[in-house]
Amino acid sequence: MAFAAFSTTTAPSTDPVARRRSPVALFLLLPGILYLVLFFLTPLVSLLLTSFQAPREFGDIGQYDYAFRWQNYVEVVTTYWPHIVRSFSYALAATFFALLISYPLAYFIGVKARKWPLLQSLMLVLVIAPFFISFLLRTLAWKQLFSDESFVVQSLKALSLLGPEAHVTGTAFSVIFGLTYNFIPFMTLPLYTTLERLDVRYLEAGNDLYASPFQVFRKVTIPLSMPGIVAGTLLTFIPAAGDYINASRDFLGGTGTQMMGNVIEANFLVLQNYPSAAALSIILMTVILVIVSIYVKRSGTEELL
């Protein structure tokens, strides 16, 4: 699946030594396996079981029994399909903008700034610096900056770039903006690591073979930095699709911008409709899995790594 894109050994090993199962290797793997069983497999199974639960007859709100009520899935899809579509559209848009902003940035740090290692390190620190402040605080700060009374919005209104009744918070723009902003480091860092290793002699060879700078970029630089692009877009797209902070009404979102994460949160914590929340979670996971595996397969980046 997704992690095949990051590993170098995707081909099954035919080496007889590697194929022999060593008890020592199994023993060493045991803590990891136990951890995964306990904290990944068990919750996953529990989630799957919950998603098929049926409400208890004559029970209270939030009381469910194990069953095979597949209608849960039909119900959540018919009820929440706008949120599902919105989640993936917002995530896609945020990934696109993050890539658009991060690529030149990563290219500059990784290729152009090679001559000045100090500048390179400084810029990398600046990319990571936002992590020193809590994700929630930063998003709240943007909410302040985009609030109706803020200098930014007041100025835009004074310049008639925004209508007198317009808002910035609670719009698709602010949610996508928040997602883009928050995930830029996740896009920039993998891009940087690939571009930092980019051999500029390939670019020279492209130039030498009659390719204009734009053609060199399209035919040589982009394909060679594909591993970074794939890693960066996955690291942005996957968490962005499930994000519920940016789209939350408490932060940058509004009633019209709710994403799947918000719906899952509401179903679990407010409505106590656990089966619906679980079914939505499973759908989110499956769709991401399908999209990502098609993407990794199509981009064909395995051999570049």
Partner: peptide
């Protein structure tokens, strides 16, 4: 510019495009 010149180079590192 390099790409406008009627010149081709066999590079020391070959620089064959790996992709």
């Amino acid at each position: 510019k390099s790409f406008q010149r009627p010149v081709n180079t066999v590079f020391q590192s070959y620089a064959l495009f790996p992709h």
